Amino acid sequence: MIHLHHIRKQFGHFTAVDDVTLSIEKGTVYGLLGANGAGKTTLIKIMCGLLDPTSGTGTIFGHDLVRERNRIKQSIGYMSQKFSLYQDLTVSENIAFYARLYGIEKPETRARELSEQFDVYTFKDKVVYSLSSGVRQRVAFACALVHAPKLLFLDEPTSGVDPLARRKVWKWLYRLAADGMSIVVTTHYMDEAEHCDRIALMNAGRIVAEGTLDTLRKGLPVQLHSLEDIFVHVMREDVNR
């Protein structure tokens, strides 16, 4: 579904993504794990067609990342790390607006469906800036899914929300994955990453380890069980190279 080959992204003299080669299969919940500045957000923006790679090639659903980005955008949903909804519109107005952008025939009906699905219908007539961070995240989630994408990109979707809201988001992710949707998610939370089908550990723009949690454990010269210990060990080894 996703194939990246030697992707590199530079901003002036700074290399944000450094020679990333990656394949993600259909129906996978794929986690990108790394510290701030590791390159996770830049890599997701390249896959979404929001940034051109400086070099390298890639395809999503067989479409070229650069030449066919408009075709790719019709099949993907994206929820950015920063809150990206219209603060002075209501919940229903925000969702309906995104539905219209994607050509949904009955945007108000779709807005109601998603408001109910993500437990924000009681807030449908409230302007977004007046809502708590957890409710706003659920509205952004609904907007990313308004056109029923086959592939969903989530950039730290649970950042800044309480543990209960985090649990709800991941419950929805599991449900979407069970229905056949593919999901690429960045996170700082080790407990969340442990539930991904595959994990890529990023450091300084590079992928320094990749695989299932079991393969990451087995590939180390020492016996480590928790993802947090694996992450610390891999990053330390990478820095010492």
Rank of each mutant, 00 (worst) to 15 (best):
A35Y: 07
R67S: 13
R236Q: 13
I95Q: 02
S80I: 12
I60F: 00
V139H: 09
I95Y: 09
I72M: 08
Q81L: 11
A200C: 01
K171H: 14
R110L: 00
K168T: 05
R8A: 03
L227C: 09
S92A: 15
T21L: 04
F61T: 07
G103R: 02
P157F: 04
D64T: 07
L131V: 01
S132E: 01
A35S: 09
I46C: 12
E25Q: 15
E113G: 00
R136F: 08
R69V: 13
A35D: 07
Y78L: 15
F123M: 14
E156C: 08
K26Y: 01
V208M: 00
L213T: 03
F231V: 01
L32R: 05
S159F: 03
L154H: 08
A193D: 00
E210K: 10
R206G: 06
I7G: 03
W172K: 05
D88A: 10
R206Q: 13
D119S: 11
N203L: 14
G58Y: 07
I207L: 05
A148E: 15
R112E: 15
A111M: 06
T122Q: 13
L22T: 06
L216S: 02
K9P: 09
H63N: 14
G160A: 02
T215E: 14
L154W: 02
A111P: 08
M181P: 02
L51I: 11
L32D: 04
D52I: 01
G37S: 10
C48Q: 01
S182A: 11
V161A: 08
D162R: 09
A148I: 11
H3F: 11
H195L: 07
T187W: 01
R138S: 04
D191G: 03
T41S: 15
T15N: 10
L164M: 03
M47W: 12
R198H: 09
R112Y: 12
T57C: 05
K126T: 01
P221H: 04
L145H: 13
P221I: 03
Y129H: 13
D197F: 07
S226M: 04
